[in-house]
Design a protein around this nucleic acid. Structure first.
Lengths: 123, 123
DNA sequence: CCTAGTGTCCCATTTAACTATTACACTATA
DNA sequence: TATAGTGTAATAGTTAAATGGGACACTAGG
């Protein structure tokens, strides 16, 4: 897997798993691939995978069963909450960034709108 | 200055200076504070400041005059181009991220609209 | 009971970012 | 010409991320 060298790999693995948990590839209660397999898939060391999973277990988005595997939480409320939280963080980051470039609220909205439109044409 | 420990400090300094260059605090041709002063202001080592400036000089957004100081480029076309580039990168990142969470184009737009509205109330 | 498949932990090593410190090079000006 | 203010470079030390390799613990199934 490709990584951005400006962000720790373990952190990008968390983001990657969040995506899979929130777009249907990994549903509530689903079992994750074994850590050793994940390490191979992501072309990364097992310890690095473990660090990402460890944090997600602490956060309550994953559960671990020694000898059996790692699983997505069955708490769908928790998952919905996670999605909200991640979406909000992303929106806030973009808003702050563009606002710092002196774009007004209206300009921020229209620039996103135009970006999406142009993107549709480009594809 | 506060830094996000998930991103290299020198990189955050670049972002910080881009903001100042694109929101009027540092206009075309303006002289930057001395590197030693910047280091103090940002509570960071001179070498770290130098690394950020070095990259910006290579990129052509800053120029350096030994013995005199560092200056914002006078090439306003270059600055406009920089702004476009940074805004686009930010929009692309947000779009990709939210799209990976299974939001449709319409949902992405309305979620940003709602975020901005709620934000206005909260303030 | 044994074995294969899991998660977990530990240790040593490497690498990159950052810091601290010192020295050098150029410019302007008194 | 001397000095203060500037950028630039070099070196050494610290820290955190990531790697590599090994060992241990638990579970399921033959």
């Amino acid at each position: 897997m490709k990584f951005d060298d400006k962000v720790p790999i373990y952190y990008q693995i968390k983001t990657h798993l969040y995506h899979e948990m929130l777009n249907g590839q990994l549903t509530a209660g689903a079992q994750l691939p074994p850590v050793r397999q994940l390490a191979v898939d992501l072309t990364v060391n097992v310890n690095t995978v473990q660090r990402a999973l460890g944090e997600m277990i602490t956060e309550g988005t994953l559960t671990s069963q020694r000898g059996k595997g790692n699983f997505v939480t069955t708490d769908t409320t928790r998952l919905a909450q996670l999605k909200d939280q991640l979406v909000m963080a992303q929106l806030a980051q973009t808003y702050d960034q563009l606002h710092a470039f002196n774009l007004t609220d209206a300009e921020i909205l229209t620039s996103l709108k135009q970006y999406i439109e142009k993107r549709g044409i480009a594809q």
